[in-house]
Design a protein around this nucleic acid. Structure first.
Lengths: 215, 215
DNA sequence: GTCTATAAAGGGATAGAC
DNA sequence: GTCTATCCCTTTATAGAC
């Protein structure tokens, strides 16, 4: 029951955990749960295989730990959407945040995509629980703005689906985008174009004349 | 070199092939390449495992055959986008076609998503070849419309990325959408709302005042 | 806590009878 | 052409030395 201050031992433990989680995120993201092997994760982390089992027990527990972290990020990105926000600015901030996340954490996004693609066996409870509640809450905010005539009338939950899809595609489908654009990797140029396109569609669709200011 | 008319033998062969391909599409879509087992595909098809190897040789060859079929669908959906088309009608037709495809062939869409997520090892050549050429061709059509002032100026290739993402999410992320909307499965209502939302964003973003006609 | 060696299970693929 | 039995390899997970 004692809670010792983090000494050298605890710090090294935290470092090992982060080391394993980072390697696991990358391997799981590009190979999926079944495709990833503990050996590949161990190699990426620079540790023997048995170490992973010492820290996390099973492959599924390690995978679940990653999804847990992930959910927190997902749920925290909508903070800017509050009843007292300016509607267009709130949506623009949300889109920019989601796009920045696709750029900074592409592996996390792919991990999430892989999990949902296979039917979300480990995430179903969170999706119908925390995420659903959050979406309902934010949808209510949007409906309020619509009732006040501050934005066009659209089904707010489907608007979220559209924003998620458009922003996450720059992480999940980066391979396709890269090959179609014929660039070695997605950089400033591609993300700027992406943000501009998503902003134009969403602001143009929700606010009509507000779209012009973004090129 | 002889090309016999399809007799009973050839017909049964075609039926077996279709039987296997259908089962494989479903299993690969929900489990990914590595996650799917030949045993699971055989069980789904109602055939012994060795039959699959007789017809397709290896697991990878079976998977590649599915991707081959898939590409034809992907590349044929843009037919309505031609220089002499009416811009808004052409984009609307394309969106409706893509959305209908997400509804009728969700397994195919998921299969494609799984493949791109893992870096498109078997599809890279097609993406940077046929798909890239097609996108360049259609992007040129859109640029022509923009130059004539018939639609807003957006980066046309990113507009395609956005349309692909928004429409395919109704197949690939159906689990998430289903759980957030709290419905047992996506039906008419959900797809109608989805089409309306995507149309509003794209037409609103590209044609400003044309968005109103779609609710 | 860390690592080597290995057990136990499941995978793709094939041999060979029918 | 079809199916059963089996080979061989990889995988997860653990035992046990250090």
């Amino acid at each position: 029951m004692q809670q010792p201050a983090p000494g050298r031992r605890a710090q090294q433990r935290q470092q090992r955990l982060a080391q394993i989680l980072g390697a696991a995120e990358q391997i799981f993201a590009t190979s999926g749960f079944e495709g990833a092997s503990m050996a590949a994760i161990a190699a990426e982390a620079g540790l023997p295989k048995a170490n992973l089992h010492y820290y996390f027990g099973t492959k599924e527990a390690l995978y679940a730990a990653l999804l847990e972290d992930l959910l927190r990020l997902w749920l925290s990105a909508t903070d800017a959407i509050r009843p007292d926000s300016e509607p267009a600015a709130a949506l623009e901030g949300y889109i920019r945040a989601k796009m920045a996340w696709s750029r900074s954490r592409p592996h996390a996004s792919k991990l999430f995509a892989n999990e949902v693609l296979r039917g979300a066996p480990l995430l179903a409870a969170h999706l119908s629980g925390g995420l659903r509640a959050l979406v309902e809450e934010k949808a209510a905010v949007l409906r309020g703005w619509m009732a006040e005539g501050r934005m066009a009338v659209v089904e707010p939950r489907h608007l979220f689906f559209a924003i998620w899809a458009m922003t996450q595609t720059y992480a999940d489908f980066d391979t396709q985008i890269r090959l179609v654009l014929d660039v070695p990797a997605l950089g400033d140029r591609e993300f700027d174009d992406g943000v501009a396109t998503v902003l134009r569609l969403v602001l143009g669709g929700c606010f009509a004349d507000s779209a012009r200011q973004h090129g």
